[in-house]
Amino acid sequence: MATTSAERQRAYRARQSCAGENGERRLQTWVSTAAALALGRLARHAGMTRPTFLEKLVLDADQVITRAMSDETFDKYLALPRNKR
């Protein structure tokens, strides 16, 4: 029996949660048109996809911030409560 689009999508998302080194998480959010267009330009300029560029941007910013932290501050940073949806 053929699978429906919803079933294929569900299976794809389940596989993605285990993909790569540490799995992947889906982000779904709204940003301004200006930010979306800028992300597209930046990614294209860097020769990357938008998701790859966004991931690099976030990880680079996190690394810059954590390098400057003391051990105590770093421990507090890692223990930040989860954001509510």
Rank of each mutant, 00 (worst) to 15 (best):
R15T: 06
G47I: 09
M48G: 00
S70G: 07
L54H: 04
T66M: 11
V31S: 04
C18M: 11
S70K: 05
E7I: 04
Q9D: 08
E21M: 04
T66W: 02
K56T: 09
E7A: 15
A46H: 15
L57V: 09
L42S: 12
R8K: 14
G20W: 09
A35Y: 00
E24L: 12
T52H: 08
Q28L: 08
R26T: 07
E7N: 11
E24D: 05
R13L: 15
Y12S: 05
F74D: 03
W30I: 08
S70R: 06
A79E: 13
Y77P: 09
N22P: 00
P81D: 06
R8C: 05
K56S: 13
G23L: 03
W30C: 05
F53D: 00
A46P: 06
N22L: 09
L42R: 06
R85F: 08
A79F: 05
K76E: 10
A36R: 03
R13P: 00
M69P: 02
G23H: 07
K84A: 11
L39C: 10
P51R: 08
D75L: 10
S17Q: 13
E21Q: 10
Q16P: 00
A36I: 00
P51D: 03
A34W: 01
G40Y: 05
R25L: 09
A61V: 06
R85W: 08
L54D: 01
E72H: 07
Q28H: 09
R44M: 03
R41D: 07
E72I: 03
A6L: 13
N22M: 07
